[in-house]
Design a protein around this nucleic acid. Structure first.
Lengths: 233, 233
DNA sequence: TCCCGAGTTTGCGCCAGCGCAAATTGTCCA
DNA sequence: TGGACAATTTGCGCTGGCGCAAACTCGGGA
């Protein structure tokens, strides 16, 4: 359990449009915890008891196939709600959530969902909207997997990461958490080898900078061209 | 506009748990229409004014890429709600909905959503649950596209169609609406040529029967083996 | 009934990207 | 400071499935 200042959460969009009193009340009904890098918040197939809001850090949501292959469903950023499929009728978590860096998380029991959604309509509405948005995004991903080459998909993935979690540095936009070639492969449906080859090429071309578990986008514009073009780069 | 008997809808799960009076009221606030085979219910990118429930028929939901390629997002069956992404915060439809056969559809103005969800909590709850389920299903599809071979994906797609919309005939389970090789290709991220080759092979092996825009699953069990096996069939 | 066109089948060549293997490099910990 | 290990890079050969092209075949409308 972690003591949380209200100021930590009042900056998050999810809690905008609530009075300070409401924010405090919402906070009181939650329990908060820290998760160390690489620790698991919840496990696929486990009984879903809680839903969560990420206060600080980055979380990787992973689906594992029966034969052990992993696919990254999405990364969760600060202020996002997650583990809610359960609040929408599921009884088990459909994926595993792992802290990509040290994280701070708020959790509520699922049984509180109806009550909270009633008391804080903004909260409920935002959640439904979020789920709708994720459905759209996931369908977009299906379209990409169906119609694009690997190079385009990887370019798209990097651009998305840079937009959502990018941190401006003097050499470009750096992805804000450790991410391996394998991770990128699991986001795009390819192998770490192919990702490595692509990143090497792009680094030679001055489009990105990369190191161990690190990618910096130097020239987003050219990456967009790669992502959209149907020809070779 | 089509005159609708309440008995037409009272059998649908979506309207279970409502009193006959509520059902009638819900019906009165909707407008109903018929759509001929191949006609469009709504178009991708168009302003989203309404959401819908399919009363009879089958609807194909399609996403088109900027360069004109199509991907089938899903098929809608009787009793399902669709075109709701708008009710969840979007202002335009993310896909195009086309009648796969002659259809009967109920429609409500988006502006009625909040009111209806308030008056008929079951209706709202079912919808949110549906969206959650579709998110799961779509993510499953991403996993399949990432980890499975084309043959397995096509087998999975056929099994899903057979389960959801299959009609028992004396020779097996027949998919209940006209579906072309091209359609199956757009569901699985491959080409009609590859689908055709697979179906031919499976027909030779006695697993399916197929004709023009028609597929009948004769031996679902062997299809499951193909869908799950990592080896060749 | 015949004809036309959409839907389907099938052959052939090719290549993007995978699988395997081995070398290389950065990082953390003792 | 020196391993030791994890992450990354890179070479090489192979193949699943795509693209193209052509032939074929239903089914419905004139």
């Amino acid at each position: 359990m972690v003591a949380l200042d209200r100021s930590l959460i009042s900056r998050l969009p999810l809690f905008q449009g609530m009075t300070p009193e409401e924010q405090s009340e919402l906070l009181r009904s939650a329990r908060s915890s820290r998760y160390a890098k690489d620790s698991t918040i919840f496990e696929q197939e486990a009984e879903a008891n809680s839903f969560f809001v990420l206060i600080a850090g980055h979380i990787r949501v992973v689906r594992t196939t029966p034969d052990g292959q992993q696919v990254i469903a999405r990364y969760i950023s600060e202020g996002e709600i997650f583990g809610v499929a359960a609040a929408l009728g599921r009884t088990t978590y459909p994926a595993t959530a792992v802290a990509a860096v040290d994280c701070v998380v708020l959790a509520w029991a699922n049984s509180q969902w109806a009550e909270l959604a009633r008391r804080f309509p903004v909260f409920g509405a935002t959640t439904y909207k979020t789920v709708g948005t994720r459905l759209q995004e996931t369908q977009t991903r299906v379209v990409e997997m169906s119609t694009e080459q690997v190079e385009q998909r990887v370019a798209h993935a990097l651009l998305r990461l840079a937009n959502q979690t990018g941190r401006k540095t003097d050499s470009g936009i750096e992805i804000d958490f450790p991410i391996s070639r394998q991770d990128i492969a699991e986001m795009t449906g390819t192998t770490l080898h192919t990702v490595s080859r692509l990143l090497s090429k792009w680094e030679d071309n001055g489009i990105i900078l990369s190191g161990r578990q690190k990618v910096t986008v130097k020239d987003a514009h050219r990456l967009v061209v790669l992502a959209e073009n149907r020809d070779k780069g």
